Simulated assay, not measured.
Amino acid sequence: MDWLRVHRGDAPLVVAFPHGGIGLAGLDDQFVSPWRARLDTDWWIADLYAFAADMGATLVATDISRSVIDMNRDPSGTSLYPGQATTELCPTTTFDGAPLYRFGEPDEAEITQRLHLYHRPYHEALTDELERLGAAHDRVVLYDAHSIRSHVPRLFEGELPQFNIGTNGGTTCAPELETIVAGICATSGKSLVVNGRFKGGWTTRHYGRPEGGVHAIQMELAQRGYMTEPATPTETNWPSPIDPDPTILAVLRQAIAAALNFAKGQT
């Protein structure tokens, strides 16, 4: 599975990247355009957190685009945010509501096939790494790394805070971990919200079992913190390159270090 990348470390920390892929699994002609299918990618997210490997973290990433199948959705198709605008397990629109498919949308058989080919192996890899590290450590942190454009009116009003921490209302990790990471982000002076619009996706909710030793936390970044965001993304201006020295990088290094210290039982 050349689309699935696992870098194994021995520290009790797994950093997951479910939305950084741009591979369209040979479905390019089914989409309105490859650019539109990749519009809502968590651009450069694995590059942004590459330093975590040097700290001993395990990294799990997919190269498959979220437009093919969303690795951070409930495989049953149940909405994570009932009553709010969102995209499906196999999205049919962009975040802005523009149609993704040129003709017909994926039917039940196609969705099942994508689950089998991509969603299931990705989560099997995550499960394997969490179990491997859990056998050697009392506590393991799963840090689910995301990013999104700062302005997506269909999903949220106004400008998204720079740091959006999700723990499903404090249920997926110990309060201490949430407090430490939020404190680091707050000290940066940049905007922050905890369990706001993004409370944690299926990954955080599915694996976060503090009582069992797995503490899961989602970090959704507004992309303005590490790349230039045009007012209107087009094929000629989006995606922009990652900033060579992102202003938020120091904060992310501190957050990852804090999560690792928490997992090790250190203050």
Rank of each mutant, 00 (worst) to 15 (best):
P175W: 06
P161F: 07
I165V: 14
I111Q: 14
F156S: 12
P153D: 08
E124M: 12
L117A: 11
E176M: 04
L160V: 08
N168E: 10
L142P: 06
D128Q: 15
G170I: 12
H151Q: 15
H123K: 04
R154G: 12
G169A: 11
G134I: 12
P161K: 06
R149G: 12
G134D: 09
L126C: 01
Q113S: 15
L126A: 02
D128P: 07
N164P: 06
E129K: 02
R120M: 04
H137N: 02
H137K: 05
F156M: 08
I148G: 05
H151G: 03
Q162V: 15
Y118N: 05
E110N: 00
S150W: 06
T172S: 14
D138K: 09
P121K: 05
E176Q: 02
A125N: 12
R154S: 11
N168S: 10
E110P: 01
Y143Q: 07
E129W: 05
L133A: 08
Y143E: 02
L133V: 07
S150N: 11
P161I: 03
E124Q: 14
C173T: 05
L117R: 15
N168D: 12
H137Y: 07
L177S: 02
Q113D: 13
P161A: 03
Y143V: 00
L160T: 10
G170W: 07
H146A: 13
R120V: 05
S150D: 10
I111R: 15
E157V: 07
A135W: 04
T127P: 02
C173G: 05
A135I: 10
P153E: 09
P161S: 04
L130K: 12
S150L: 08
R139E: 01
E124W: 02
A109E: 11
D138P: 00
S150G: 14
R149N: 06
L155S: 07
P161C: 00
R114H: 04
